[in-house]
Design a protein around this nucleic acid. Structure first.
Length: 940
RNA sequence: GCGCUUGUGGUGGAAUUGGUAGACACGCCAGACUUAGGAUCUGGUGCCGAGAGGCGUGUAAGUUCGAGUCUUAUCAGGCGUACCA
């Protein structure tokens, strides 16, 4: 009996041995070059892993193992993003503590992950919800609170430096409350009164990236705008650095572009606009524009409804109309505002004075202007902005074209190219400043923008300004299951609990819902007051300002708090003195390869970069950018199967015959379908309803229909990796996940093809054993063919791993194993190299073979082989000779033939003669090792 | 609307970066061994055509001796974003 490929035995054995031998333990080793591979850590959901989750882990595990075999000291850690909404909502429903469900889920994840054979160093596991981890989340928050962003240095500085500066300038108030309020305008973590995305259904605020199309990403509940006092992070201060950094990292162009758009840098000008009420000058406001060149086309101004100026510019006559409009705007949800772009607005009664033309233009209030961007006020140029155009048409306001040849009778001309006209329309329409007046006529738009900026600056009418779309991140949540803030309120002033007293542990509560008085869930905590003198947390009944016992913050931190710097913690996960020791940070530097989904482009991947830049300013992180190379793995979609029930019956008709009947398609569990053929007995057993089902078959089989949909329980298309491992083994799963297609590409999971990978492993296994089950190995010199096969394979696989093209390297393995098997190769030289090459992809079988062959230690530490070109040289090359008439034949050229010799050989070949007869050669082209082209035409 | 991205057999996908399109795998067909097979092995399999041959990389043009690959236009799908002045 030949030796069987018993994957169960092999995989169990090696899981045991890897643990016993601590094969995957890594430590800092300055003598070796480091390589840091990282996956976005998962949120441990109750549903467990499906077959899509491990995709990225497998891809990076392959790379990590490969790098290790190349001699690098590889850090490849794993952990859990453990704070999150589902656990809390489950807790609200069942009363079970979220920690309990979270830890149970983590155990399940771990069990599933362990089956797949990753090279993670589990000693470095982190969980964002454990105190020894969130200690450093709180610590970073305190550092941000105690820092400000120095615009000149473009980096974070200690807040004391700012206080000194303010004192020197005489701007330091005496009152403590005033001091606190003043500093809040500068701190990187600050308490701010801002418009927030409030989700009433979830009872919490959400960050911009947590809201899509006006509803919450989690749960899909409506979101409204609300003004609230919240903790915020001054991410916007880092806008320019976040933008510049993109040019230094190896990320896909599309993700970088998404971040550039999200940061949204726009260069423009801020211009002061004086306004008059009832004919008298009453003050001024500032507008922002990127089209300073269109100042001569301004016919009205618009303020955002939420702007503080609204109140000031409203005249008594317009008061009622304005109030009504504001009421209307408030009644609209964010979602309505997004979808419905009908023109609305109201006249304020005031007029703004265009400083360039001196014209008085009406000031309107309209919701199409956003309070959060620029100054919340704009100058409207209907001729060259489609939104202003629609507004002007609706309210019958004048439209002045400013570009030569632009027809603005039907729509605005928004393009930024052309020659400027009507600027000014007549010489008296340009106000003189210090004897100079602006004239843009005849300039290109680009020139006109520059000229206007110069003019505005020179005469102090405004300033050149860069605006960013990126907004500060709202950092507090009204939830229980998150990091508590290390903050107490001393006489209403937010104060940090001293760093030495961290971590502040999440208190126990009876109920996870908000309190009856509307406080966040932490309001239910009893032991939740800060005793300043004794530096400890005490019962909140003891709160007594005179005794120095104060209330602690009830908000908790958002999901991205714990996930923003976790890669640093992996470097030194058990350090209780620091987030990461200087030695570990200096050694591991930053992540060389980061793998994860592209859905985090505007969330985690921005916050993480921001957080790291801040820690870099502090000297904690050693690199400005946290992730050198990013690979975005695609999503795995589900492939659903359908059966077709004839209406009003319990009879099911096969796919090919369904059009003959009136049928209803029904989702059927993909796990009882194989190659689209339904397992009839399993189907009857699947649900009592189908126990008595009848079938109309084709060719004795029931064929199911299929569709590509999201992988979800309700569509019965969830494929569990455990099942695959059970039936085929982890190595087959790993191979097949990679074989499915490029890692970056989204694709449906289809278990149908998996047999191919399983067969391949069996063939590989069979290469090593004779029919009696003994090692079939000789010390003979390998044949030239075998050496060529081997070196071709090494070359291909090495190149493919570097290029992240795993599907093609697996194909190459399949070809190579087929070739070696045909060559009946039993040479030790060749067969000993093969396990090393395959081990990143299929580590278990590789270890087993490596051991059987008497290899030393683990195959993980075997050196990655080098290929030798000399085995790849062809002795002769078979080439096509191509004529322009699409006629071709094959012939052999010597490998070292020059192009001239190739042409000579081709034209004089007997096969060529018949094509050349009666023709004259126009041109000959030879591509070495490829092809000869002979262009002929009939002789005149 | 804007930005990014992808279109190749029945299916997943290859193509040395401008050089024999469809590697490899699934599926399918035929055969072998079998009491049996959702096991294993061998051969075939882009489409049309009996055949010689013709046609083929979403569509249409272009550059080139030569285009899946480059250029332009166009169509279709996917992702992101949305009144950002």
């Amino acid at each position: 009996m030949a030796k069987e490929y018993n994957f169960r035995e092999i995989e169990q054995k090696w899981h045991r041995l890897w643990t016993e031998r601590q094969t995957y333990k890594v430590s800092e080793d300055e003598r070796r070059e480091k390589f840091y591979v990282l996956n976005m850590f998962p949120y441990p959901s109750g549903a467990g892993l499906h077959v899509g989750h491990p995709l990225g882990y497998i891809a990076s595990d392959i790379y990590a193992r490969y790098k290790r075999q190349q001699g690098f000291n590889v850090l490849n850690p794993m952990g859990y993003d453990a704070y999150g909404l589902p656990a809390e909502q489950y807790a609200i429903k069942t009363g079970q503590h979220p920690e309990k469900t979270t830890f149970a889920n983590i155990d399940r994840y771990r069990e599933q992950l362990d089956k797949i054979g990753f090279s993670f160093d589990w000693d470095r596991e982190v969980r964002t919800c454990t105190p020894d981890y969130y200690h450093w989340t709180q610590w970073a928050f305190e550092k941000m609170f105690n820092s400000y962003f120095d615009e000149e240095l473009q980096k974070a500085q200690p807040i004391e430096k700012l206080i000194e500066k303010l004192k020197k300038e005489g701007n330091w108030p005496a009152d403590e409350k005033a001091q606190s309020d003043l500093l809040m305008n500068y701190r990187i973590a600050f308490l701010g009164e801002t418009m927030v995305n409030w989700c009433p259904k979830l009872g919490t605020v959400l960050a911009n990236d947590e809201v899509v199309e006006g509803v919450s990403v989690r749960g899909g509940y409506p979101v409204e705008q609300k003004k609230m006092r919240q903790w915020c992070l001054r991410v916007s201060a880092y806008s320019q650095r976040l933008l510049d950094g993109l040019d230094t990292i190896d990320w896909s162009e599309s993700i970088k572009e998404t971040q550039r758009n999200w940061i949204g840098r726009s260069e423009g000008a801020e211009i002061e606009i004086p306004y008059s009420l009832s004919g008298e000058t009453a003050g001024s406001f500032t507008i922002f524009t990127t089209r300073a060149d269109t100042m001569f086309g301004v016919t009205f101004f618009v303020l955002a409804p939420e702007s503080e100026l609204v109140d000031k510019v409203t005249t008594p006559e317009q008061r009622a109309a304005v109030d009504e409009y504001l009421k209307y705007v408030k009644s609209r949800t964010e979602r309505e505002r997004m979808i419905d772009h009908t023109v609305t607005g109201v006249f304020s009664g005031a007029y703004g004075i265009n400083p360039i033309t001196g014209d008085k233009c009406p000031i309107y209030i309209a919701e199409y202007v956003l309070a959060g961007y620029g100054t919340g006020a704009i100058m409207a140029v209907p001729a060259h902005d489609s939104r202003d155009y629609a507004f002007a048409k609706h309210f019958g306001l004048p439209i002045i074209p400013l570009v030569e040849g632009a027809d603005v009778s039907e729509e605005s001309y928004d393009a930024k190219e052309g020659i400027v006209i009507n600027s000014p329309i007549s010489p008296d329409k340009s106000v003189k400043y210090d004897g100079e007046c602006l004239c843009l006529n005849g300039l290109t738009i680009k020139e006109a923008i520059a000229e206007t900026k110069r003019f505005v600056k020179a005469h102090n009418l405004g300033r050149v300004k860069v605006n960013y779309r990126l907004r500060d991140a709202i950092f507090s949540r009204q939830r229980y299951w998150g990091e508590p803030f290390p903050v107490y309120y001393k006489h209403g002033i937010p104060t940090m609990i001293p760093e030495e007293c961290l971590p502040i542990e999440l208190p126990q509560v009876e109920k996870f819902l908000p309190t009856e008085t509307g406080e966040p869930p932490l309001g239910n905590a009893q032991i939740w007051a800060w005793d300043e003198k004794n530096r400890k947390i005490v019962d909140k009944k003891l709160i007594d300002e005179a005794a120095g016992i104060y209330p602690i913050e009830l908000y908790t931190m958002p999901g991205f708090a714990g996930s923003s710097a976790y890669y640093l913690r992996y470097m030194d996960p058990h350090n209780s003195e620091a987030l990461v020791s200087d030695r570990a940070a200096s050694y591991w530097q930053n992540v060389d390869l980061y793998v994860g989904g592209s859905e985090h482009a505007t969330g985690h991947l921005i916050y993480s970069r921001f957080w790291n830049k801040f820690l870099f300013d502090l000297g904690v992180s050693k690199k400005e950018e946290p992730f050198k190379k990013l690979v975005n793995q695609g999503m795995i979609q589900g492939r659903s199967n359908f059966v077709y029930r004839i209406k009003e019956t319990n009879t099911f008709v096969s796919f090919g015959l369904k059009d003959k009947y009136d049928v209803t398609p029904i989702h059927v569990d993909v796990n009882i379908v194989k190659n689209d053929i339904l397992d009839l007995d399993a189907f009857k057993a699947w649900s009592p309803e189908y126990a008595t089902a009848d079938f109309i078959l084709e060719d004795g089989k029931y064929v199911c229909g299929w569709a590509i949909e999201k992988m979800s329980k309700s569509m019965y298309n969830v494929v569990n990796p455990d099942m695959i491992v059970e039936n085929y083994g982890a190595d087959t799963l790993r191979l097949y996940e990679m074989f499915l297609g490029p890692v970056e590409q989204s694709k449906p999971w289809d278990t149908n093809g998996i047999d191919g990978c399983f067969r391949f492993l069996k063939k590989l296994w069979a290469l090593y054993w004779d029919k009696d089950g003994n090692l079939a190995l000789t010390d003979d010199e390998p044949s030239a063919d075998s050496l060529k096969t081997l070196h071709k394979l090494i070359k291909k696989v090495t190149g493919d791993i570097e290029a992240f093209s795993y599907n093609t390297s697996i194909s190459a393995f399949m070809v190579a194993v087929n070739e070696l098997s045909q060559q009946k190769c039993s040479s030790r030289t060749v067969l000993q190299t093969l396990p090393v090459l395959i081990s990143p992809f299929a580590p278990h079988i590789a270890e087993e073979l490596w051991e059987a062959l008497g290899g030393e230690g683990s195959v993980c530490d075997a050196r990655w082989p080098q290929y030798d070109e000399k085995y790849l040289v062809e002795t002769s090359v078979k080439l096509g000779v191509q004529f322009n008439g699409k006629v071709r034949f094959d012939m052999l050229f010597p490998a070292d033939a020059t192009p001239e010799q190739m042409i000579e050989l081709a034209t004089s070949a007997p096969e060529a003669a018949k094509y050349l007869e009666g023709m004259q050669v126009v041109k000959t082209i030879a591509i070495p090792k490829r092809i000869v082209n002979i262009v002929v035409k009939p002789k005149a």
